[in-house]
């Protein structure tokens, strides 16, 4: 049976056709149902396309300032360790404006879970260059394609996995049903780690932004398979026992 999870409100989402957010929203809600943690959940929505996460998840959710969810999550988890605290962040939120909060939460080994959607651009504001934009990728602020002067894509998994206190880091993708199921396994493990008091877990999910990429939804999936996942290699980067 493939039935929508109870932790997802039965409403139409606002995302563009073919956007990966809707898929990850559903996976998140499925995991919350499967682990039976809806009553313990405190989720933090980012500034970005997923800011309206609270219109879709049927558990306690708040909206943090741009880039600050790991700081907000730190306070909540420290004060209420029995709750399950998850931040849901995009690339601009997590590693551009919020790089410092993410780095320090990781370095403290905060017992929180971060779902990080990497769609290589700022989707909500119209598709500008992000720290994760692929070299040569055209965006509304790199009309000729990203050059070396704009920096190279930041590899969040490689960076965060190098920190001693980090427990689990994985990069997955949404470009096929198999990869979506793999994403769900990684997300579930990242939450289970928190329940088991194992510490900081981060899952980076390569996601489609067909609107900003100016592609058909299926072509956007193929673009992840053929281009994005070549720049950002999939796999488990850290799984500390």
């Amino acid at each position: 049976m493939f039935v929508l999870p109870k932790s997802l409100k039965p409403v139409k989402n606002h995302y563009c056709p073919g956007c990966g957010h809707g898929i990850v929203h559903r996976l998140f809600a499925e995991i919350v149902d499967e682990l039976g943690i809806r009553e313990k959940m405190i989720a933090i929505a980012p500034v970005g396309c997923a800011v309206f996460g609270y219109f879709y998840w049927d558990f306690d959710t708040l909206e943090a300032a741009h880039g600050r969810p790991p700081a907000v999550a730190t306070a909540i988890k420290r004060l209420m360790p029995e709750k399950v605290v998850v931040t849901y962040q995009g690339d601009g939120d997590l590693i551009a404006i919020g790089g410092n909060e993410c780095l320090h939460a990781a370095n403290r080994g905060e017992n929180i879970t971060i779902f990080f959607l990497n769609n290589t651009c700022y989707g909500m504001t119209g598709g500008q260059m992000a720290p994760t934009t692929i070299p040569g990728q055209k965006t509304t602020t790199t009309a000729q394609g990203r050059t070396s002067l704009d920096g190279n894509p930041i590899k969040v998994c490689e960076l965060i996995s190098s920190i001693d206190y980090v427990t689990y880091v994985a990069r997955t993708s949404l470009h096929s049903p198999e990869n979506i199921l793999e994403t769900k396994r990684a997300m579930k493990k990242a939450i289970q780690n928190q329940i088991d008091n194992k510490g900081f877990s981060l899952v980076e999910i390569l996601s489609m932004c067909p609107t900003s990429w100016k592609m058909e939804p299926y072509d956007a999936m193929k673009y992840i398979e053929n281009v994005v996942s070549k720049e950002f290699k999939l796999g488990v980067y850290k799984d500390r026992k």
């Binding site: 600050r68 700081a71 907000v72 420290r78 004060l79 709750k83 410092n100 909060e101």
Partner: peptide, 23 residues
Amino acid sequence: LFFQTESELASINMTFGAAVIGK
């Protein structure tokens, strides 16, 4: 809970986190 933060940005946003759960 005493917490030395990584910046004032973190300070105020952690304060926000504590406030959101009614502390």
